[in-house]
Nucleic acid binder design. Structure first.
Lengths: 226, 226
DNA sequence: ACCTGAACACCGTTCAAGT
DNA sequence: ACCTGAACACCGTTCAAGT
């Protein structure tokens, strides 16, 4: 620990540049993500945060994508573990909802989770938890294995999808465009869309997520693998 | 028009720079995407293709994301319409499979489809088709409306997910990392994962997609909306 | 081994100026 | 109105050189 030779708060109160480690790098990246969003988690920005040049980071991380993946896994550590009481279905829904909300609050991370192939320890923990709950519900092994993928994929995609809907977001317009396109569908050429524009757009995200999770569970439970 | 003082096919046979239009811009973008991939569809690259500067494109398109969305919608026009024969389930699966394969062949586009909020005419056509098929199957309106979202989301996410698995891909490693992480799961700490690592990884993409679509349909069919 | 300054090869977007 | 050169403010990654 070389953080020794400093007189009490010398130059500008900076806490004596700690040695660079992978953990420190990831921690800095998480901090920047929480305060400024994932789009600021760039090699250059994090390097600056750590008082070095971008080239230095490549000692600990293969590329920028790997850094984003590490940030994601860090966050996955905050998924709430299954509660003690309730049916397996309720507990399963709770875990997935907790996961979804984590991402719902971090739009850009949700989008990156969809595109990255997570493989960190916290992601593996999450898979184990979901498999255990499905086993508890008596879901056959093969269906459980394939089902976990579908469940996580849906929760992630939903978070990424609704991420743009928040007040201050850049891409609110995209939503508005789709909304009006559906609402203004011509009953002549697109009758079903016109008739269902209400339900297509209706429902708070939470209600839709909850319904989708239950529908997914029902499907997984009742559809044998080949 | 300063392109006048040319003798028949002067300088390098270039076919007399056609007037710029939105359609021409999108066509150029689609061409570049098909030949070089979406990551080459940048404002600068397309501008170069059209013999102009990047600033000129902003007359027809608000930003790069809108250009990508236009390319996506163009491609959605190639989804196969439902066949005449077969049950509604079979026809529904075929449409979704056709959609998924379109994206499976274009990794980067699949990823962008997941993150963009499509609202083009071809996307609306697709929604109409899916709603009609679900109606034919007797799926209640509310469930059909919410179900369409889940079905499209799954097909898109699956395409994006398996996109990286192709031979020449950059991110093959991501897959390999997850694969070995699952296969090497410690039976002590992650027993379910260790036991199911086979099924978790098994199955050709087509079989998994087909199973998931059927599971989704079953779930949608048997889960009433609130 | 670890670290880094500097460079390479790109981006998207804006804006003042031209036609 | 439409178009554009040039600039602004960024990127990721590599590499030769330093310690």
């Amino acid at each position: 620990m070389p953080a020794s030779s400093d007189t009490p708060s010398s130059r500008r109160e900076r806490p004596a540049k700690p040695a660079l480690t992978r953990a420190g790098l990831v921690a800095a990246a998480v901090a920047v993500m929480e305060t400024e969003g994932l789009h600021k988690v760039t090699m250059r920005r994090i390097a600056q945060e750590l008082d070095t040049g971008p080239a230095s980071l490549y000692v600990y991380v293969r590329n920028a994508a790997e850094l984003h993946a590490a940030v994601l896994d860090e966050l996955l550590g905050r998924v709430e573990p299954p509660s003690e009481d309730g049916t397996w279905r309720e507990r399963l829904e709770k875990v997935l909802t907790s996961y979804a909300h984590l991402l719902l609050d971090r739009p850009a991370l949700a989008r990156s989770a969809l595109v990255a192939r997570p493989s960190g320890p916290h992601y593996l923990d999450l898979i184990e938890i979901l498999l255990a709950l499905l086993a508890e519900g008596g879901v056959p092994d093969g269906q459980a294995a394939w089902g976990v993928d579908v469940l996580l994929q849906h929760a992630t995609a939903t978070a990424a999808e609704h991420a743009g809907r928040t007040p201050g977001a850049r891409d609110r317009e995209d939503w508005h465009t789709l909304e009006t396109a559906l609402r203004d569908a011509d009953p002549g050429t697109r009758p079903r869309t016109a008739a269902l524009s209400g339900p297509l757009l209706a429902g708070p995200p939470d209600a839709r997520l909850s319904w989708a999770i239950q529908a997914l569970i029902n499907g997984i439970l009742h559809t044998p693998t080949p």
